[in-house]
Amino acid sequence: MENLEDYKDDIRKRKLKFPELADDYFANLINGAYNEYESEYDDPEEFRSTILKENPEHLFGFWKCMYSDTIQQDFYVSNESWIIPPESDLNEILRKHSSIEEFNLEEGNIFSLNGGYYVINENYLLRVSFPALAKAFQCVSHVFNQEQSLLERHDWLYDLKSINTISISDYANFILFTINGYKIILWHQYKLTFSDINLLNRNAAAIFNITSALIGLKDSISCNWSQLNDESFEELCYDIIYYDPKFDNKTIRKMGKSRSRDGGRDIVVYTHERIGYKAEKFIFQCKLIKSDSSLTATKVLDISDIVEQYEADGYGIFTSGVIDATLFDKIDKIANKRQLKIALSSKYEMERDLSMLPKLRDRYFK
C-alpha cells in the first residue's frame, strides 16, 4: 500500500478524493512528526529555516486546508482555529466545511485579568486560549501580512491594537476576530459558570475600587442600615450568600418571612461538594441592629440546640452591628466542642463584601 508520506512534496498538486485524510496527515506532521525531524538536525535553527522557506505557516501550527480546492475557497486551519484570507468567503467556507448553514454574530470585546483572556458581550463571558489566539495572530502578522520579520520578537500588544472587530456566534459556537482584513475563527473557548463569573466579578471590583481611589473617586463603604427592615435585611443576607463562591446557590433556602416560626433558622445552605469533601450544611441567623449597640451573647440564644436539632455542619451570623466579645466567646466554645464551622459577618465584613458587589449594594441602599 502506498504511503501518504511518499506524496509529501506534491500532495497539494493532486486532486484528492478524500481531502480529510490529507488534513489529518498535516495535523500529525505539524504537531508530531516535526519534533522527530528536528531531532535529526544538529542545529534546530537549520530545521526552522527549512520550514520557513517551504511552509512558514507551519511554524504557527497552520496549514492550507486540503478542502480549499474542493470548495474553491482558500483558508488555513490548525487544531484550534482557522484563518480566512480577505479574498475568501467566510459564509461559504462555514457552510461547506463545517455544516453551519446560517449564523448570527454579536459584537464582543476582549480583556485580560489575572493572566486570563476573556471575550465578553451582553450574553456571554468566554475564556479564550491565549496560546491559540497568539499563534493565529502571529501567523497573520508574520506570514500573511509580513508586517514583522519572523526573526523579530512578536508584539502581542500590537495585535490587540490591530483587532478590527470581535464577534461571538449563536450559542457561542465560535469567536470571530478580524485583523487587517483576515478573519480568525477560534473554535475552542470555555463558557464561564456562575461561580467563575462571580469570582471574576469580585476580582474586577477590587481593581476598580483601587483605580477609583487613585484618580480621586474615593467612596465610603459604610451602609445606612436604618434604610432596611428585618425582612429586607434577611433578603440582603440571602443575596450575599447566593454570590459567595463557597456555597452552592442551588441549595439555599430562606426559611419563611422574618420573625416567622423558623426554629432559629433564617437561611440554610450547603457548601459545594468536592472530591474528598462532602457538602456541608450551614445555618445562618440574621440580626438587624439599627442602633449603635453590639450583638451580645444574650441576644442570640439556643445556638447548640439549633445546630444539634438540624444536624448542621456550620453556623453563621449576619448582623448590621458589631459582634460583642461575649458572643464570639460563646460561639467559639460551641464550635470547638462540636467541631463546628463558623461564618460570622458583622457590619464590617458585610460592608466590605458589598463594596465588591456594587450592584447588590445599590439594590438595597439608595
Rank of each mutant, 00 (worst) to 15 (best):
Y242W: 09
N229H: 14
D239P: 02
C223T: 06
I241R: 01
N229W: 13
T251W: 11
D239G: 05
Y238T: 05
W225K: 04
I241A: 00
I241T: 01
N249C: 00
E234Q: 07
C223M: 11
Y243W: 12
E235D: 15
N249H: 11
I241M: 00
D244R: 05
S232P: 13
T251E: 13
D239E: 12
Y242N: 04
E234W: 05
S222D: 12
K250R: 15
L228K: 08
R253F: 06
Q227T: 01
N249G: 01
K246D: 15
C237W: 12
D230G: 02
Y238A: 00
D248E: 11
I240G: 03
K246F: 13
N249M: 07
C237D: 08
Y243H: 15
D248P: 14
S222C: 09
N249R: 09
D239F: 08
E231Q: 01
Y243I: 01
I241C: 01
Q227M: 09
D239V: 02
P245A: 03
S232V: 10
L228D: 08
P245Y: 04
Y243P: 08
Q227E: 13
E235V: 10
Y243K: 10
I241L: 03
E235C: 11
I221F: 13
C223I: 10
N224F: 03
L236E: 11
Y243M: 08
P245L: 05
E235H: 14
T251V: 04
E234V: 04
Q227P: 11
D248W: 07
R253V: 02
I221G: 07
Y242T: 10
I252V: 06
I240A: 00
Q227R: 10
Y238H: 12
N229A: 08
F247E: 10
Y238C: 07
W225F: 06
K246R: 14
S222A: 07
I252G: 03
C237S: 10
D244S: 09
C223P: 08
F233K: 07
I252R: 13
C223H: 10
I240M: 08
L228P: 04
S232H: 11
K250E: 15
R253T: 04
C237T: 12
W225C: 09
S222N: 14
Q227D: 06
F247M: 04
N249I: 00
